[in-house]
């Protein structure tokens, strides 16, 4: 065990009056230093050689565990345009939901912002009711839009879709029936 001796080194006149003791390194400090060094070597060997871990494998394991626990269901809640309810009631419920969930990105008047506008004739992910529903359900995670399935109930998804479609129709003059109708391409 090293002991404090409080012996002065006698440097004071060479260091503007500051002297230094010749005390040894505190034992626990030396121990801590060695511990971190040994740990560093051990961890590196374990991670890269013994357990052979990697970022990719960690992700794969996590995904496999998630898959085991929550097997991907067949898209049960998939809705089709045929069942879409675009009544005034649905639209007005949709307006409220829009104000809660969508307004931050798509703007108070649906004019766009972080996300695109609904008032022009351009649809990045398709402008038929089916496409709009799919975009809402699945989101566009790559660009930051949340998949709303699971956050919103199927009825709520119906309602925001109805609201978006009605606003688009109002702004562009494209009839709702045309948007909801199967297959027809939007007029240029």
């Amino acid at each position: 065990m090293s002991q404090e001796n409080d012996r002065l080194l006698g440097h004071a006149d060479e260091a503007d009056g500051i002297d230094e003791y010749d005390n040894p390194l505190p034992d626990w400090w030396v121990g801590l230093f060695w511990l971190t060094i040994v740990w560093a070597i051990g961890y590196s060997l374990h991670y890269h050689v013994i357990a052979n871990r990697s970022q990719e494998r960690a992700l794969a394991n996590e995904m496999a565990a998630a898959e085991a626990r929550w097997p991907a269901e067949e898209a049960a809640t998939r809705m089709s345009a045929a069942e879409l309810d675009v009544t005034d009631d649905a639209i007005s419920r949709g307006r409220t939901l829009y104000g809660q969930y969508c307004v931050a990105c798509h703007g108070v008047d649906q004019e766009g912002g972080i996300g695109p506008s609904f008032l022009d004739t351009e649809w990045i992910h398709g402008g038929q009711a089916d496409d709009i529903l799919r975009t809402i359900v699945e989101g566009v995670p790559a660009k930051g839009m949340v998949p709303w399935e699971g956050v919103l109930s199927p009825t709520q998804i119906n309602d925001v879709a109805a609201f978006v479609i009605s606003r688009h129709s109002e702004a562009t003059g494209r009839p709702i029936a045309d948007i909801v109708g199967e297959g027809a391409d939007p007029p240029p």
């Binding site: 500051i18 003791y21 005390n23 040894p24």
Partner: peptide, 24 residues
Amino acid sequence: YYYLPRAAQRPVYSYRLSIVHFWG
């Protein structure tokens, strides 16, 4: 290392520690 011992008017605790932790 300069102002604390000056203000406290005390010698630095350990010369050796200062060198080892500096290089560390």
